[in-house]
Design a protein around this nucleic acid. Structure first.
Lengths: 204, 204
DNA sequence: ATCCGATTAGACCGACTGGTCTATAGAATA
DNA sequence: TATTCTATAGACCAGTCGGTCTAATCGGAT
């Protein structure tokens, strides 16, 4: 039932439209989601972040290098955008930008969705790597790599950057009707991250 | 008249709302913009990209290093977001994500808006630098720095990444109600770009 | 078979949407 | 000052919005 909610934004696709697409009458919705549209949006957000996380997790298991996993993860979204005539972007992004500061619970849900994503990515960066590093001991004080090549604070920033590049790239490609902007942004990011890791390895 | 249009999205803020905020009656709008809401949106997009470009241009003139200019440019947007209680994001982003593929002219306008931004940034990257390089002669064939430390193709990717990080970071901070995600993403990006430039300079 | 609570179905509602229309105010020309 | 053409003003419209309400239907317990 909540599958097609992840397609586009909140105010963009009206309740009636969503319902008709789901072949469900109004009554059902307001029985299961007494909170109305906002509660529905929150459910959709949580479902979306669940799917996003699961697909990321799968790739983290499949690849040795978390950067490879992230590349593949992002590439999959880009592919999905292309194959749907540049219609299906990120459901989180769509709802995010049409949310008002007064929609406290929706924003709360979005904030924790992004936080979950960033946290998972950061964990993957600090923990993993193409060749396993030493034990993780020190706090986020030093700048040196703790295990996977990223200190805790570096990983936080990098994770935020990855999510931002993902969302921002998707957005540019969506309106451009071309995969190019997103590909340019994300491959450049991937390259930068790999270059840095290599240079850190050589120096430290 | 178009000043307040740049605030938020298209469907998010209705025509009547916009008009009442502008203290203008319906007639005025449909006299000046016979195309209705979409034409208004396009005008707002063009005005927005104009403002964005101008503020970037100002900073490119003020700073020697384009990376410094970009940092300051992005920081200004982050400040604007914070000082408006996380209400004012990027007008381009808001309209972008609620645009359907069928809104051809709106998307066209958005696409060229982002393209203009990316092109200007790429130009700044290839042309400028903290210490002026040699003359710009070679095509985008070689990978080596042409003048500012970026080849043409590198600059394209980097520009797309910068715009993506800007938009994606702004989005995350907006819903989080905190400047932190955007700051983390953009400072990490800035660091990465500076590191790479340095290492390129040392190697080449 | 009968009942009963939970779920489904969709008609219905007021509010508001984007957009059109006529009437008026204002500036420019004569 | 009279005239004309443009820009302003806002009433008005059909359509749609998100949301509520009652009638029908379903499955399980008796």
């Amino acid at each position: 039932m909540s599958g097609m909610l992840q397609r586009r934004g909140l105010s963009g696709s009206g309740v009636s439209e969503i319902l008709s697409e789901a072949r469900a009458p109004k009554g059902v919705l307001y029985h299961h989601f007494p909170g109305g549209k906002n509660q529905l949006a929150i459910a959709a957000i949580e479902a979306s972040v669940g799917i996003l996380l699961e697909s990321l997790e799968r790739r983290l298991g499949r690849f040795d290098d978390p950067l490879d996993a992230l590349d593949d993860w992002i590439a999959a979204s880009a592919r999905r955008l292309s194959t749907t005539d540049f219609d299906l972007g990120c459901p989180l992004a769509a709802v995010s930008l049409e949310s008002a500061p007064s929609d406290v619970d929706v924003r709360q849900s979005l904030a924790s969705a992004f936080d979950t994503l960033r946290t998972r990515i950061a964990a993957a960066l600090t923990a993993g790597g193409p060749t396993e590093g030493g034990p993780t001991a020190g706090g986020p004080a030093a700048e040196g790599p703790s295990s996977g090549g990223w200190s805790a604070e570096d990983a936080e920033g990098t994770a935020a950057l990855i999510v931002a590049a993902y969302e921002g790239g998707l957005m540019q490609s969506r309106v451009a009707g071309s995969a190019r902007p997103m590909a340019a942004a994300t491959t450049t990011l991937s390259l930068l991250l790999r270059e840095r890791r290599m240079s850190r390895r050589n120096h430290a």
